[in-house]
Amino acid sequence: MACADAPQLSAYFDAELPAREAATVAAHLEECASCRAHLSSLSAQRARLRGVSESLSASRALATRVRSALGAEEAARAARRGRRREFWLGSLGGALLGACAAALVFVATPLLRTDVLGELATAHLTALSRGALIEMPSSDHHTLKPWFAGRSDVAPVVADFAADGFGLVGGRVQRVGGARVAVLVYRHGAHLLEVFSWPAAGPVPPARTVRGYHLLSWQVGDVRSCLVGDAEWPELQRLAQLLEQRANLEAAPR
C-alpha cells in the first residue's frame, strides 16, 4: 500500500482502526521507515503529554474542599427532608385528631401526586408566556444529550422525529417541585409540545387535561416522562409512543 495518511496512522496508534484496515497499516509499517518514524513520534508525544499531565494533580486542599462540599450538600438534603416531615406532622397533629387525620392522609396523598401534572401544566404555560422555552436550541442528539448531563436529574431520551412530523427544537432544564426536570421542545405544525422527564417511582397518573393543555405520562425504568401540549390527543399519543419506544430501546442492556 501507499503510505498511510496522518489520520489513519493516528487512529492506528490509538487502536481505533477496524481490524482489516489495521492489518494493512501494520503490514505497511514493516516496510516503511518513514511511517515507523511518524508512529514513534506519536508515542514520544503521548509520553510528553502524560508527563505534563501527571505533574498536575488535584491538590489535597481540593480533595478536602470537595468532600466537605458533598457533606454540606448531604446535610442540607437531610434537613430539607426533616422539614418536610415536620411540616406534615405539625399540620396533622395541630389541627386534626384520630380518624380525621387518617382521612386527610388518605385524601391528601393522591392529591399531591396528581398535582404534579398541574405543576407541569403551569411550568409549560409560564415558559410559553415568557418566551423562555429553550435554553439550548438544537435538534441534534449529539449536542443536546451531553448538554443535559449535570444539569437535569435524569438523562432524557433525545431524538428528533422530524420525519414523523415532530421536529425537535431544543431543550431546557426547569425546577418543578424539588426536581431539576429535563424538558425537550418539539414543534408539530403550529403546536409546541413539551416532554418533561424526571426521576420518579409509583403508579403513572392517567392522561388529563389542565386549562386546555393535554398531559400524557409514561414511565421507563425510573424515569417518568410527561408530554404536554395543546395538539389533538391522537397526535400527542403518536409522539408519546415514539418516545417511549426509543426509551425502551435505550434502556435495553447492551
Binding site: 488535584a58 481540593l62 474542599r65 470537595v66 462540599a69 458533598l70 450538600e73 448531563a149 449535570g150 444539569r151 437535569s152 436529574d153 435524569v154 438523562a155 431539576r180 426521576p199 425504568g221 425510573d222 424515569v223 434502556a251
Partner: peptide, 17 residues
C-alpha cells in the same frame, strides 16, 4: 471541579451511563 462534583453528586442517583 468542585462545582462539577456537586452536580455529579446531585445527579448520581439518576446516573445510568
Amino acid at each position: 471541579v468542585q462545582e462539577a462534583m456537586l452536580r455529579a453528586f446531585r445527579g448520581f442517583a439518576a446516573l445510568r451511563a
